[in-house]
Amino acid sequence: MIKTKAYAAQSATSELAPFELHRRSPGAEDVQIEILYCGVCHSDLHTVRGEWHNTLYPSVPGHEIVGRVVAVGDKVRNFKPGDLAGVGCMVGSCGHCHSCDEGEEQYCDNGFTGTYNGPVFGGENTYGGYSQTIVVKESFVLHIKHAEKDLASVAPLLCAGITTYSPLRHWGAGPGKTVGIVGLGGLGHMAVKIALTPWALTSFYLPRLRRARSKTASGLVPMKFAFPPIPSKWRLMQTALISSSTRWPLRTIWMSISNCSSAMAR
């Protein structure tokens, strides 16, 4: 067992405070990671405050983990000590249902094991990234290819990044499409960045939506950015909204993905 310093909440009404926990020693398929940075997701707050009514206490949240591999088990093939690695919202799943077979472990028919707050259907609690060390099965550890100097800024990708990337991909955001994003917070700003990649976007508009007064976006303010020319592929105009609202004021970003024959000055 590996003694690890952490921060935990002992109840829904107590603040996070120093806590000591024990991680399992790496088994044959495990990767032990020294945690360098951990992003703070609003899910952490929902969990420690018991707002989803399923919290196991003491609760150690944190599922946007980046760090360095310090030890690996005998059967680990893809990681070695010294590698930069990340852990997101899952540390396990059943591995044999339809969803797991298709690489969609988050939809595991038997419930995935969360990085914190344990398996959905009961069982031993799991402790997340507000800690010095974590031990995770290799198949749930991710490679980080960003430069090490950017590591802290990479951490939020492990939840905010994938949560916005996945629907953009699944619903086919790309040239010829318009994407709207409701709310500019942890997820919203990642959705903007991911959709605003050189292959996707040439311009976007930042409107202020007057809720309760108008039913359509008003006051569109065109904001043009420079992007390399993008060949137009699809003329289908499909509008997708990704909702990750923050509180007032709500801001909606409409991004028009279209072709552009020349770059515009930033």
């Binding site: 992003g39 298709e102 994938i162 991911i194």
Partner: peptide, 23 residues
């Protein structure tokens, strides 16, 4: 939509590294 699978999360990380996307 709920996060993404491990394969897709790795794809996203690689995509972000390639395009210098960070938070």
């Amino acid at each position: 939509s709920l996060i993404g699978g491990i394969r897709e999360t790795q794809e996203m990380l690689d995509f972000c590294a390639q395009h210098d996307i960070v938070s």
